[in-house]
């Protein structure tokens, strides 16, 4: 290369390409993303966080939780699950129908109670065969297609993360490290504010072999007044404060916990469906939009 302008031209072209691809195109494609509708309920998703939880997001950023915790779920394939919802009038008939259509499901089916998860089959065609056979025998069954993969089996989330999940985050931190567990669904798996507060104060109080650092500076230790504060931490043993003292969370700790409890991404979206298992998950969807 003989001239300086050629150097700049090369650099400019290379960088302009990648800038267009990785900055401009995503902005055009996703920058104006709107809230989606959950499927099938049709609720708007996501819903903006409460003021306190938004404040908590700032605490989360400021303390650098992202250097140990990711907030993104990957998915590797799906599983197809057949659930028996009714045995109709003739249980024996249904049982033999299942045995015929999908023998490995029947082996575990005692049919004592419904709804009952019969098990997983290889693909939707097999599942449909089983459902038809059950219907012909007078019973009823449903098929659920569930996302699969190690992240989901660890109960870190119910489906893969999608762009919508981050729509209202002021600072988007998907994280690239898992020195601690993924927190995508932490508000659902650790739904107790007291657990979260204790865990932040000293992780070993609730997870004895935890390697997470504590955040005692988010709490104040003070003399107990006339009556103990209602939000004082129930500490005991080596973690207990000196006699006559109590440990209470600061506003920051409360906000951080509000944020952690708001972390749920189980709303089923068209792009990333979750066919909810029968009973509990439907209210999971309702809560998720709070």
């Amino acid at each position: 290369m003989k001239s300086g302008s050629l150097v700049f031209l090369t650099a400019f072209v290379a960088l302009a390409f990648s800038w267009t691809g990785f900055v401009l195109v995503p902005q055009l494609q996703l920058g104006r993303l709107e809230a989606a509708k959950t499927v099938p309920a049709g609720d708007a998703y996501p819903v903006a966080r409460s003021g306190q939880a938004r404040q908590g997001a700032e605490v989360y950023r400021s303390l650098g939780c992202v250097y140990c915790h990711s907030r993104q779920i990957g998915q590797q394939g799906t599983t197809v699950e057949v659930t028996l919802t009714s045995v109709g009038t003739n249980a024996a008939n249904v049982l033999s129908a299942i045995q015929k259509a999908a023998p490995h499901l029947a082996a575990t089916a005692s049919l004592a109670s419904v709804p009952q998860v019969l098990g997983q089959v290889a693909d939707t065609a097999l599942a449909d065969d089983a459902v038809t056979a059950i219907a012909e025998a007078g019973g009823e069954a449903t098929v659920a297609i569930l996302p699969d993969g190690p992240d989901i089996r660890r109960r870190w989330g119910r489906r893969r993360s999608v762009a919508q999940d981050y729509l209202y985050d002021p600072v988007v931190q998907p994280g690239i490290r898992r020195f601690g567990p993924d927190l995508t669904d932490a508000g659902a798996t650790r739904a107790s504010a007291e657990w979260q507060l204790l865990h932040l104060y000293a992780p070993k109080t609730v997870v004895p072999d935890s390697t997470m650092p504590g955040y005692p500076f988010l709490f104040v230790e003070r003399k107990i007044g006339k009556t103990p504060a209602p939000d004082a931490l129930p500490l005991s043993g080596t973690f207990a404060p000196p006699d006559g003292h109590e440990v209470v969370p600061t506003e920051e700790a409360q906000a951080l916990v509000a944020y952690l409890l708001s972390l749920r991404a189980d709303a089923p979206l068209y792009e990333s469906p979750v066919t909810p298992p029968p009973a509990p998950a439907t209210n999971g969807v309702a809560v998720a939009t709070k």
Binding site: S18, F22, P26, L30, G31, L33, Y166, L167, Y168, V172
Partner: peptide, 17 residues
């Protein structure tokens, strides 16, 4: 700030470069 995951894309683009 751009919105949503575009932030993540920009941040990763920056870090990669």
């Amino acid at each position: 700030p751009v919105r949503g995951v575009v932030q993540a894309a920009v941040a990763w683009w920056f870090a990669g470069n």
